[in-house]
Design a protein around this nucleic acid. Structure first.
Lengths: 199, 199
DNA sequence: GTCTATAGTGCGATAGAC
DNA sequence: GTCTATCGCACTATAGAC
């Protein structure tokens, strides 16, 4: 009888949003652009996402989930060796920054576009970054760090600097030093980590 | 009997812009807000700055000049000891991030709001950050760094991370580790730097 | 003040699944 | 043909640049 709801609409909207928001920034992209890019109608877009803010938040939530999936893939081979897992994640960051279509970290970028802590997009961004910091702290603790919080904060320095500078100054310099610095920091905090072998 | 142009109009506009742009971000602030905040008329504003983009660029240029003045003040006492000058600048960054009205680095923030390399605001931001990196490289070279470019890139990692994370995650963690990390990096690159004394 | 753009609403037309 | 998902467009209201 009735027409079947097209599957994957939400996904298509999110993918188009991810591309546009990621490349140009959130405030620079209008809902009309999202509509044009998806071919979806305005009514359907607003049925899926009640407002632009909600779309922004959903995009970041989705990206967070996907990011952690990739992080899992990248660190899994080193399961049981937390220091090496941390380094694997740092390599993953380095590779991301080197992607030709790298346009900066969507979480830092969105935070800088929305300063209000109550903004849904900013909240998702903060959640992601806090989650990352927690992961680093927990891994650091497992790796025998004497002060896992300090280690996590320091690695966040390296990560934040890599992502921020990579976008503005070009990727070569920051990406060149990020791994070595992370390793230096890691060895500093975890006396027995990364024993022997080079990276 | 023509009225004399009020002096300092341009300055007043720039000061109001600095406050608004800095606190809320550039795209979040309309020209009307700048007008309301200065009390200046629309025509006068547009006589001083032909467009919003030009105002953005002028604000960043002005901020850059003021920033270097402060940097000069902060590093001058250590003239002749480049490693300590670098550390003084890092302390200056740490203090900035700890200011109660810290809202992130205006250069990183503006870069993330305007991705087009041709945008005047982005160009000023890039210029500032390149200038900073150059200063670090030159000081590093004077301090005896074996690879001053690597040192500069690494310190930019710490600075970028401090500013980016300070805005999103709160200032305590990043600020706590930035100095120690900078010192670690500096000692790593300059064998004879910071000899003896603690920070 | 003017003109454009944007977020968001609502409706008639159309495209498909049965 | 019927029924509904969805498109496309017209519309409002607000805000922005200039």
């Amino acid at each position: 009888m009735a027409r079947t709801p097209a599957p994957g609409t939400r996904r298509r909207i999110l993918e188009a949003s991810a591309k546009l928001f990621g490349e140009q920034g959130v405030r620079a992209v209008g809902m009309q652009q999202v509509i044009d890019a998806t071919g979806v109608g305005k009514s359907l877009l607003y049925r899926e996402f009640a407002s632009k803010d909600e779309l922004i938040a959903a995009w970041l939530r989705e990206s967070d989930a996907q990011w952690w999936e990739q992080a899992e893939e990248v660190t899994a081979p080193h399961s049981g060796d937390p220091a090496r897992q941390i380094m694997a994640l740092m390599e993953f960051f380095q590779a991301s920054v080197r992607e030709p279509d790298f346009h900066g970290c969507i979480y830092y970028n969105t935070s800088s576009e929305f300063r209000d802590p109550a903004h849904p997009g900013r909240q998702e961004a903060t959640l992601h970054l806090k989650g990352l910091r927690n992961w680093l702290r927990d891994m650091g603790a497992q790796a025998g760090a004497e002060d896992p919080d300090a280690l996590a904060d320091t690695l966040m320095l390296v990560i934040g600097g890599l992502l921020a500078n990579g976008e503005v100054l070009g990727v070569d310099g920051p990406a060149r030093m990020a791994l070595a610095t992370a390793e230096l920091v890691l060895r500093q905090h975890c006396p027995n980590a990364l024993a022997g072998a080079a990276l």
